[in-house]
Amino acid sequence: MKKCYIHIGVHKTGTTSIQMLLGRHRSALRKHGISVPVAGNAWSPDVGYHHNIAFELNNDNRFVPGRGGLDALCRELEKEECPTVVISSEDLCVSARDAEKVARLREPIAAMGYEIIWVVYFRTYPEWAESAYIELSKALAITRKFEPWVKTEPMSLAVGLDPVGTLAHIKATGDKIMLHSYAQTSGDVTGHFFAQIGAPDLLPGEMKSKDRVNNRLSILELELLRNMAVHIMRHIPQDLRPCIRDAVRAELGRLPKAPSFRGLSNPLAYRLYESTRPAYEALLKEYRPDATMDDFFPLAAHYEPVTIDSNPPSPEDRLKLYRALIRLCFTDKFGAQATSAPLTKP
């Protein structure tokens, strides 16, 4: 029977690395009988992600019809000769929280005779939340510092706060669910994933954690993004926000080097871990009764927060940070620089 692996993330569990390698090794995978569909690649057909399908399911305004959605995927699968197909998008874990969306995705694929296998990686909640914070900051979607945000942001953190709920509608379909731990991959989540889909030897140590795609943000970069998010939300219409993102990226590149941001402290990590422990124990009981919390979701021994408050930058670096923010403030809605030079003697 043909198999369709649907990798739904979750976010911040090496998904970008996996998707990059799915795209890079599309031909080699095909030789192994594994197909990575082209339909649904939201931005680049060279990468093996299918975010456009998730965007369509989630009514996300990032959906681009020309990149192909569910219909295009089905048309592609109808002609597919490989016995195994892989679809990957971490945004599908958001779709998974809605039974109707799960059905819209799986039923046409199941109707073509595919056995559907859902693959999902979870990680320890405090680390996942910290990582989600950084990623949302990169998307200019966060205006608050980490600690107040993580305490009061149930919407953005729903997937991690309620892992059983995230998988409940998938479970109801009767499909197979492969639940894995990000920690147990020992920094080689791509190798682990490729082994799961039946191509264990394709990537001998190609991409370890040291080659991670999404690097951590420095404290100065985070400060710039966090402040900029406030300005953008206030003055830049939703549809024009992508225009200003290039200007933000350029300013990030000009910032001086600074320590990488870490939001977790021991007390905070422990509190978050303990508050979500019952949910994660229930997840294991449901899908991995063989595993223990300590193996599957281990909490590190020590967390040392590194923030702009605990590492105040030098006056020169602070000036560079605020200069960058001021330049961005004077970037118009279409991303063009609109300011004059600072005041000089008249």
């Binding site: 206030r234 006056p315 602070r318 000036l319 923010l325 001021i326 403030c329 005041l343 000089t344 003697k345």
Partner: peptide, 22 residues
């Protein structure tokens, strides 16, 4: 020019403006 003023003062000025504007 304001460029001749201490970096800390300029940073404080820009920070204040940014807070006020946003």
């Amino acid at each position: 020019s304001i460029e001749e003023l201490p970096a800390a003062d300029l940073a404080e000025l820009y920070k204040t403006f940014f807070l006020c504007a946003t």
